[in-house]
């Protein structure tokens, strides 16, 4: 289990503020992408985020565009998971496909604050912050295979090899 600090945001955090449209059609290295993460929501984030940190937000995280960099830039910034009350559909798929864990927990969303210490027990389905423990539901079977393979590309590679 790796530890980190909570970055807390509200409802409907959209993909434009996570990763602006003006960068979306440029090819960038992961560290460059990380430097623009959440730029239009919280300019401090990209400067101060540390590997293992966790984003905690309200409902409908990742609504808006299908741009995958909105998941990739957070992973590149070292974010170990996003915890939210709910996720927008395409964001959820993209995050899984890129290996960024997205965890649904209304209780954690409600109770965690910016700066809280947090660790995540993925196997046990628990988000732990001091005395507080929040459970998250297991991911659907269909996506566990993708996460276990290390993302959709690796999963597809294996599938193609099997087909040979």
């Amino acid at each position: 289990m790796s530890k980190g600090k909570v970055w807390k945001y509200g409802d409907d955090v959209n993909t434009d503020v996570i990763y602006a449209g003006k960068y979306t059609y440029q090819q960038m290295r992961p560290e460059e992408m990380a430097s623009h993460a959440l730029e239009d929501l919280d300019p401090e984030f990209a400067k101060d985020v540390r590997p293992g940190d966790v984003i905690v937000a309200g409902k409908n995280f990742g609504c808006g565009s299908s741009r995958e960099q909105a998941a990739a830039c957070l992973r590149a910034a070292g974010v170990q998971a996003v915890v939210a009350k709910s996720f927008a559909r395409i964001y959820f798929r993209n995050a899984i496909n890129l290996g960024l864990p997205v965890l649904q927990s209304e209780e954690a969303s409600k109770n965690l604050k910016s700066g809280d210490d947090v660790e995540i027990d993925f196997g046990g389905g628990k988000i732990i912050s001091g005395e507080k423990v929040f459970k998250f539901p297991p991911l659907p079977d269909s996506v566990i295979g993708i996460l276990e393979a290390g993302g959709l590309l690796e999963w597809t590679k294996k599938k193609l090899e099997r087909a040979k």
Partner: peptide, 8 residues
């Protein structure tokens, strides 16, 4: 869908 899914 996203880009990685499209590649797949």
């Amino acid at each position: 869908i996203g880009r990685t899914e499209m590649a797949s």
